[in-house]
């Protein structure tokens, strides 16, 4: 059995490379660029230490930034998303009991809760990301279109990711 830490490290690399080598190059339309790497932040253990959650999200965002020539906009949005994560978990799943799910998964949280949880965080992430990218307030409609369309697309990919990784993170540590 592979350790949980190793699995997360592997997922980190796979998601960053999937994002910068595949998803950033597949042309789905002029506005569409789903940010599937955020799945990593979503799927981190429920009880992860706050400071570690923020740091790993910062590093994740900065890795994507380094490949996308986007300064630090992914780092800023990822840290923001990580900051909101504990509050959103409390909002959608209530207080998680000690014998509750250790990792947010479809079987542990329920499919509906996972979708709701992902959608809120993805939307927060994308809102900051696409506003920081343009860094101005004109072209407001275009930016809003980008946020909404991409949130939807990212959600589809992220849910697929949750489904695929169901067995990968299910067993207890």
């Amino acid at each position: 059995m592979i350790g949980l830490r190793f699995r997360y490290a592997l997922l980190f690399l796979v998601l960053v490379f999937l994002q910068v080598l595949v998803l950033n190059n597949v042309l789905l339309g002029s506005y569409l660029n789903p940010q599937v790497y955020v799945l990593f932040i979503l799927i981190l253990p429920v009880a992860i230490k706050g400071w570690f959650l923020l740091l790993i999200s910062f590093v994740l965002g900065l890795s994507v930034d380094a490949f996308s020539d986007s300064l630090a906009i992914h780092a800023a949005s990822s840290v923001f998303m990580a900051f909101c994560r504990p509050a959103v978990i409390r909002l959608v799943a209530g207080r998680i009991p000690d014998d509750g799910p250790l990792v947010p998964t479809i079987s542990g949280f329920g499919g509906f809760t996972i979708i709701f949880y992902s959608l809120i965080l993805i939307f927060l992430h994308h809102s900051l990301l696409f506003f920081l990218e343009i860094f101005r307030t004109d072209e407001l409609m275009q930016t809003l279109t980008r946020i909404v369309l991409n949130s939807g697309f990212t959600l589809v990919f992220v849910f697929l990711g949750f489904a695929l990784l169901e067995g990968f993170f299910r067993d207890r540590v």
Binding site: W51, L55, F58, G61, A72, I73, A75, V79, F80, A82
Partner: peptide
């Protein structure tokens, strides 16, 4: 820590 990292990124 959030403030610090966010400020750094911005």
């Amino acid at each position: 820590l959030f403030l610090l990292l966010e400020a750094l990124a911005i």
